[in-house]
């Protein structure tokens, strides 16, 4: 009786084994597809990684280039201001000589006309100076772009740093420190419309000046 039971168990186990093999045969093509997919994906991931490394390694260079632009425009603006200052001094000298000439020659129309021209040139010089404020405003806009690049670089460097231990980070300097610079206004705009100034004027007029009269008087009395 026991032998019959054992044989039945063996047949039952053999049945299970057969089912396992049948299942295995069905599974093999799926596993093969997964392997093929992985074989296709690995080069793609390597390309993504390489691209990530390249992009990240180029970011400090981009930042340096932007800083170079800012420095170059600042130097150029200073040079323009030097020229404007020199010309302004010449104009002032010319103006004073013309005034002297006017006082000697009376109401000479040519002298009066020249004085008007000199005044117009002088105003033009001042307008050039005013327009050069664009350098500071664009410098702030460029700093804002640098800050954005820095944020992206930090994220990408973080990703690379995570896979660094697996030795696939390549030669990227993930520890590169971007210059920390809070000296910009991301909303800086070169607009000559007076909307913002009017808003400021309105808010200032509403504001109660807490500096007492007596204290301001004391301050100016020092002079």
């Amino acid at each position: 009786m026991d032998q019959i039971t054992n044989m039945e168990n063996i047949f039952h186990k053999l049945g299970d084994l057969k089912s396992f093999f049948v299942y295995g045969q069905k599974l093999i093509p799926i596993l093969q597809k997964i392997l093929t997919f992985m074989e296709d994906t690995v080069p793609l991931l390597e390309k993504v990684n390489q691209s990530l490394q390249e992009s990240t390694s180029k970011m400090p260079k981009a930042t340096h280039q932007i800083n170079s632009i800012t420095n170059a425009t600042e130097i150029a603006t200073t040079e323009i201001l030097d020229i404007v200052d020199g010309m302004t001094l010449d104009i002032q000298s010319m103006q004073s000589k013309l005034e002297s000439l006017k006082s000697r020659t009376g109401e000479d129309e040519d002298v009066k006309s020249l004085l008007k021209m000199v005044e117009s040139i002088s105003n033009g010089m001042m307008n050039i100076t005013i327009s050069l404020q664009v350098q500071d405003i664009t410098a702030q806009q460029l700093s804002s772009v640098n800050h954005l690049i820095s944020s992206i670089q930090e994220k990408l460097a973080g990703l690379i740093f995570e896979v660094k231990d697996k030795d696939i980070s390549g030669g990227v300097d993930v520890d590169y420190q971007f210059p920390k610079n809070g000296s910009f206004n991301a909303d800086a705009r070169y607009e000559k419309n007076t909307g913002s100034q009017k808003l400021a004027d309105s808010l200032v007029s509403e504001n109660i000046n807490n500096t007492s009269q007596e204290e301001i008087d004391k301050l100016f009395a020092k002079q």
């Binding site: 405003i137 000559k192 100034q197 808010l203 200032v204 504001n207 807490n210 500096t211």
Partner: peptide, 18 residues
């Protein structure tokens, strides 16, 4: 502008200015 006034600036100019 409000933040600056709260910090007690006496007046406020927005660039570019004349």
């Amino acid at each position: 502008i409000i933040e600056a006034l709260e910090a007690k600036v006496n007046n406020y100019v927005v660039k570019p200015f004349t």
